[in-house]
Nucleic acid binder design. Structure first.
Lengths: 252, 252
DNA sequence: AGATAGTTTTAATGACTGTTTAGTTATTAA
DNA sequence: TTAATAACTAAACAGTCATTAAAACTATCT
């Protein structure tokens, strides 16, 4: 008999494919149960082989985790650098980055990014630092695009770092709630929606209130002068409101 | 001699305070190293007592985790229900919810919420389900406010669930990047900034583009009208707000 | 068939760690 | 003072699990 193909789903696969399958399976289990709580027995059982057999493909559990991190990193960065370097207006670039980010998470695999976002501290010191560096780099890219947008007068004045965190957080959190399925959102829908929300906000109307963001900006202290006092005032009132409510609660 | 107070930072504390200290310390370590990777030796060493001594206060490691979840839940929900139930316009309620959410995470303790967001799968089945239910409930509250905002014509048409996820993700992610410190943002700053970004988006100008969100909406197809919806609405809203505030002042 | 390399298994090893037991010391109440 | 209870410790128990060693199986090539 010739080479059995697709026998048990693992044997009879190219070696590189087998390694990929191991990585994916591990990611899936790490995602469901956590890295530390997942035993190599779990992984091997899921694959239909013995624990010891794993060691033919991966030299240690830690190495398995590393592999997941490397892949996740590659998948997010694959297009990011290109997009960021394109000769496009900042808003377009930002939009592309967001789309790429969300598609990356959902299409590549939620499990992989779930691990990527939560198991950092299980990595050996050296890798840990590398990952942290790369994540910061990514934030920095987003931040720079935002800065450009502001300096070109395309975006409202704001704190670019905070805005980058907001944007990235919104996108990353997808891994927490997204459940694939036929009636589920497509990555494109989510990305479009997020872009739309981020670009123009959820408030309707508002015509002339076109000032910049509040003045808690980077540089800091420039008190809210007595500008056209519309949104600013509203905002101030809300803060007041918040205080008043707190006081009332305390009283009963 | 009377009761020694503040001897070693643990002994000579009210019992309830000692338990609280244990919980906090555990949360801190779980946050840094992960629940599973943190041994009870770690926790007890950090507290300056023996592993076995822990068992005087907590019946198991799992129970320790539960305690953290319960506290986190209480701290987020303490005000949420009240806010959601208030007789205030949706945008104000949403703003308050966001402020409360972010303040909760940062002030209460990042560690606690870090654990809250990442160690669910370490809980016993029953508690796991309970937590999931509560988290969904929270999302639902936000969603409902958004729905109201839309039906009152205050918010653009959109998919409330997706918007709730976006908002919550943005806020939750704070636990990943926030580092307390003197030159750090205050919770209020972050909350204000996020609200501002969410309400009006980062794009500047754009005058006439006042349509609703794209039509990937829940119910689906009603194309975004192009109404003129001017700043009468804004003014009206401010008036509303003023009234409410006045009423509240009168009452207390 | 025999050899070689690649693959998988069985069976240990050894470290780690949640939990328990039995006992010690400190504090409180009577 | 004495009895009782609370707070703690040291040591062992029992189970888990990553990792290794050595043997066996499979396929391919000659």
């Amino acid at each position: 008999m010739e080479t059995k193909v697709n026998e048990s789903g693992f044997r009879g696969l190219d070696k590189s494919l087998r390694i990929q399958k191991i990585t994916d399976t591990a990611a899936e289990l790490f995602h469901r149960k956590g890295y530390r709580s997942t035993t190599l027995d779990d992984v091997s059982k899921e694959l239909g082989i013995t624990k010891a057999a794993l060691y033919h493909y991966v030299s240690s559990k830690e190495k398995l985790l590393s592999r997941i991190y490397i892949q996740a990193l590659e998948n997010i960065f694959r297009n990011t650098d290109k997009i960021a370097g394109k000769e496009l207006p900042p808003d377009v670039r930002l939009r592309l980055i967001i789309q790429n980010h969300i598609k990356g998470i959902i299409i590549q695999s939620i499990s992989m990014f779930s691990v990527f976002f939560t198991e950092e501290n299980q990595l050996p010191e050296k890798e840990f630092r590398k990952i942290r560096r790369e994540k910061k780099k990514y934030t920095r890219i987003v931040e720079e695009i935002i800065e450009e947008g502001i300096s070109q007068g395309l975006f409202r004045k704001s704190d670019p770092k905070l805005q980058a965190f907001a944007l990235i957080g919104m996108c990353n959190w997808v891994y927490k709630w997204y459940k694939p399925g036929p009636d589920s959102y497509t990555p494109e829908q989510i990305a479009d929606y997020f872009v739309s929300l981020l670009e123009r906000g959820y408030l309707k109307g508002d015509m002339e209130g076109m000032q910049d963001m509040p003045e808690l900006l980077r540089g800091g202290k420039e008190r809210a002068g007595s500008k056209k006092e519309d949104y600013q005032r509203l905002r101030a009132k809300c803060t007041e409101l918040s205080k008043i409510i707190d006081e009332m609660e305390e009283k009963g």
